[in-house]
Design a protein around this nucleic acid. Structure first.
Lengths: 335, 335
DNA sequence: ATGAAAGCGCTAACAC
DNA sequence: GTGTTAGCGCTTTCAT
């Protein structure tokens, strides 16, 4: 039998409620003497709070749940680091639950794992929720916020501006003299790939460059997408630059280019999107449009906190974080 | 106010206990008619089970907690995939909590986040717990098991045999004619690095090769460790093969070798340890001693289940999973 | 400052 | 098969 506040109360000779007050630091309602006795007894008995009981009566916990998709890109780790740091600093605990990004049933399970206990808030990392599951989430009255994914309805999110990403990546290449620029591995999903594509087209249009349809090779942000895209561009491609949908995609493009005997950046320049550590372990290192993933996590927690503080039970904020071009070694200036 | 079983009971006109029975699938104790009415009402009202209440009375939940360290190697994802799959298949939910691998205070927090609710079991992924925190874990009466880390006391674990790994990696190189073999990025931690080193030395000894002290470059399994080790071996190293502590370390070695103008595998062969996807995205692809991380997760869940089933409340098993050499392109046969 | 008592939402005997 | 009842361990009025 686990030790409870009753055991402590009995041992010290006070009422359970007093023990509760001490252990919850309701500092106005006990003397330091009782406090010390209680704390000693608690330690001696090896007392551990039963959170289930606490949550049952308080109907709220200090736990933040992060729902992450198990897609094989690695930026999630940076977001989680940001969440973790900010959560810890503010006295919250973090639990993470996995969900395949697509399967609705798995999404639902992940969501329920989080919702079925009174968490303080929920953060969703690049999860494309089905309508049913979104409704489920909303019905739970727990504040939530999407991270690394933007929407054009009124769902709260914190994300990079995907159009800006596409635009800046393209612009970077154009500014270095490139005019034939491909884009690899972007998906067709309305809220990310499509917006990046729009940015890409906008920059091209501004420079009076006509896009050829085969410059655009869709995919799913994976390494394989990068390889496939480069294969489609071909050994004798007219392209002098390509934008990759993610760091892993960029590595796929790079490797396939090498297999073709195309030297990067001499024959072909690559701009990656994300800017994770992967960019530093390739040869050449990958120039990228980098996102501030860590900060996304930090702000996500702050949004949750705020909506709890003002009692709104709902995050009301859609924000884009700035992105930045990081020049490494994979882009060459054309003369 | 959230909807409870009482609300459903009132609506349907039955007792709360009947609702409970239906919703918990105690199938012998209700008719299919009541069941249907109850389920309909539940759906209509948007009922969601309050797990805190369930856990309070049952003192056990269907949640498995995985404690992971935020070290920057990527095998954890594979273990988690294994845990997740096996957990789902057996009706368990998985929550993950992060802990820096070293900081005792952070470890403690992570542990408490898991322990403070009645989880079904705890899996620890390559976490080196301090003595205090181990005691804390043991005091919780929840079955636990370490994954990807072995011990010489009686703690339950599932891991690869690190000595076998070191031995096989070395043997692989020896069998291909190598005799001057370095080892890079291994740590001094008694339960992993040291055992791999022992395997390395054993294989060398069997082949009557005398180890030179500067063949052994310690580190922390990181990319940087690989770079540093290769720098220490030097541009004009006598080594013809090196074993890397992890895939990321191997990439560090590879890149630094290239910087030196040393061609892999022509001038230098590399054997990596782990065998994650990283091995496939380098050029050349990395030959590795691969661990079955996915299976570690699967078996971990099974061990937990078993110890719950037999009421022992304690996993009693220390097992090594087989490892396998996967030949890719980074090892050359010497003549 | 402390105690007594009620109750959070659910499950599990125990009756019938 | 279903209702009744008694808690699970904690927090929180309400007294004192």
């Amino acid at each position: 039998m686990a030790v409870t506040i009753k055991d402590i109360a009995r041992k010290v000779g006070v009422a359970p409620s007093t023990v509760s007050r001490v252990l919850s630091n309701k500092s106005k309602y006990y003397t330091s003497e009782t406090a010390e006795m209680v704390r000693n007894a608690a330690k001696e008995l090896g007392y551990k709070k039963n959170q289930a009981a606490v949550e049952l009566v308080k109907k709220r916990s200090n736990v933040i749940a992060a729902v992450v998709s198990s897609v094989k890109t690695n930026f999630a780790e940076q977001i989680i680091d940001g969440i973790q740091q900010e959560a810890r600093q503010n006295g919250y605990n973090l639990i993470i639950v996995y969900s395949g990004s697509a399967d609705p049933e798995e999404q639902r399970h992940a969501l329920l794992t989080a919702i079925e206990r009174p968490v303080m808030g929920i953060l969703l990392l690049s999860i494309a929720l089905t309508d049913d599951n979104l409704a489920l989430l909303q019905s739970s009255d727990v504040p939530y916020c999407f991270l690394s994914m933007g929407f054009d309805d009124d769902r709260p999110f914190i994300s990079s501006d995907d159009e800006a990403i596409g635009y800046q990546a393209t612009k970077l290449l154009i500014n270095k003299g490139h005019r034939k620029i491909g884009i690899a591995g972007i998906d067709q999903y309305p809220y990310t790939g499509r917006r990046r594509l729009e940015g890409y087209k906008k920059a091209l249009k501004e420079a009076d460059i006509t896009v050829s349809q085969d410059w655009i090779q869709p995919g799913d942000y994976s390494y394989a997408s990068g390889e496939a895209a480069m294969k489609a561009f071909g050994k004798h491609t007219e392209l002098t630059g390509v934008i990759a949908a993610s760091d892993m995609t960029a590595i796929g493009v790079l490797n396939q280019a090498n297999s073709f005997g195309i030297a990067v950046p001499t024959d072909l320049s690559i701009v990656s999107i994300d800017g994770t550590e992967m960019c530093n372990i390739t040869r050449p290192q990958l120039t990228s449009i980098s996102q501030d993933f860590f900060q996304m996590g930090v702000i996500g927690v702050q949004m949750l906190q705020q909506s709890v503080a003002d009692g709104s039970e709902r995050v009301d904020s859609q924000q884009f974080l700035p992105v930045s071009a990081v020049n490494r070694k994979s882009v060459r200036t054309l003369d």
